[in-house]
Design a protein around this nucleic acid. Sequence first.
DNA 1: CGTGAAGTTGATGCTTCTCAAGCGAAGTGG
DNA 2: CCACTTCGCTTGAGAAGCATCAACTTCACG
Lengths: 232, 232
Amino acid sequence: MKPKTVNCTECTNLNCSLLVNCNQEWLKYINEKKTVLFYKKRQRIIFERGPVDGVYFLLSGKVKVYKSGNDDRQQIVRLCTDGDILGHRGINRDFYPISAMTLEDSYICMLPIEDFKFALKSNPELTYNLMLFVSEELYLAEELIKHLVQLPVREKIADALLRIKNTFNPAPSDPSLGASLTRQDIADLAGTTKEQVSRDLANFKEEGIIELDGKEIRILDLMRLKRIINVI
Amino acid sequence: MKPKTVNCTECTNLNCSLLVNCNQEWLKYINEKKTVLFYKKRQRIIFERGPVDGVYFLLSGKVKVYKSGNDDRQQIVRLCTDGDILGHRGINRDFYPISAMTLEDSYICMLPIEDFKFALKSNPELTYNLMLFVSEELYLAEELIKHLVQLPVREKIADALLRIKNTFNPAPSDPSLGASLTRQDIADLAGTTKEQVSRDLANFKEEGIIELDGKEIRILDLMRLKRIINVI
DNA sequence: CGTGAAGTTGATGCTTCTCAAGCGAAGTGG
DNA sequence: CCACTTCGCTTGAGAAGCATCAACTTCACG
């Protein structure tokens, strides 16, 4: 809950999407314009159809980015962790096309959209890298489309687990997912229902692929999990 | 089948993604580097997992961009028409993540990837606009995700029809879709099977929403079609 | 310790896929 | 020019996968 101040020029977040492409002069500029905000667990950061105010950089924490559909179903389109950029989809839009919510207590740097645009205009290198980043996001989105449409539920849930693991705790040797999501969150990632998630997790456990320990899901056999979704 | 030469500086394709952002000097450069290619109907332009050779600009014609999944199912992620850019996803990749195929005879300008990268590096305005364009594609991809996961098949097919119409013949007063796709193509857009497409098109016809005339689908009641998918 | 949220499990039924058969149009070769 | 093949489309019947609903249990937290 404590407020925090961070100086961009000394920020330890080495994979911050902005820092990588900025020299000291630009970091100073960013530093003056940005604000560090605290969000507690499960707090909304970005509101779909809300006015675009800024671009957010995740200093520390975990965030889900999702779209709301009919009958309060949500589709999670991205998971974010330290250093990730959020809300850049709002550029050139009046309203955000997505929502974002923290999965745990997080510190987030907010840069007003106009300052971000100015930085892009004056810093071609930054623009180029943002373009590459968005291209990569597009690639991932299209992979997701393929999976969500073509895979059976069991495989989509396996895929969801792997995406969680990959984002929050990529180390293959550590069985922990790195974050605790609700069954509904996993369902919203996989495009199914919380009941199906419950059932298939029980199956995975039965097969010795995962371990269920209270809220914690641990991956015991990563290879087997990957083999389940063996897409082409 | 006849070869064609076009001078970029005199190209009439006003919505060409490149022309819009280039001055005469750059157009001359592009013109020297590009090649105009002819592709007949249903010919592959880009091969998924094939090496990235260039960026393509659709001079005239119609193209589907798709991903291949298991058991030869395809998911169409985009439809392209005159002036659209293709293969830009290959930037910074060794292999194309998607395939592209013409839906009818097409003339396509090909620019080697290195020349395109050079143009981007030297022309920040172009990069900025490409970034915006890819952002828009990302937005559409995420909308698609939501639709494909949450909508029933009938609505996904209605959505597919609207996307076809919107790309190839946006004029609301003209009932023609502007392109003739196979039932399988429509299924690959909607994320379902050709049999379901057949059934639901028959229903739409029954309800007086569309008209089936041989291979041609005509939209009689655009409003009603739109109301079917009334997503939030 | 009580209350509400999250998770589990079972029964049921619907949506949608799959398989199969029949049809018509279009293209091919004798 | 006509038989023949092929391909795309349609329609039906059957099966299966998955969502929904409901009841119950467990967990988290004040």
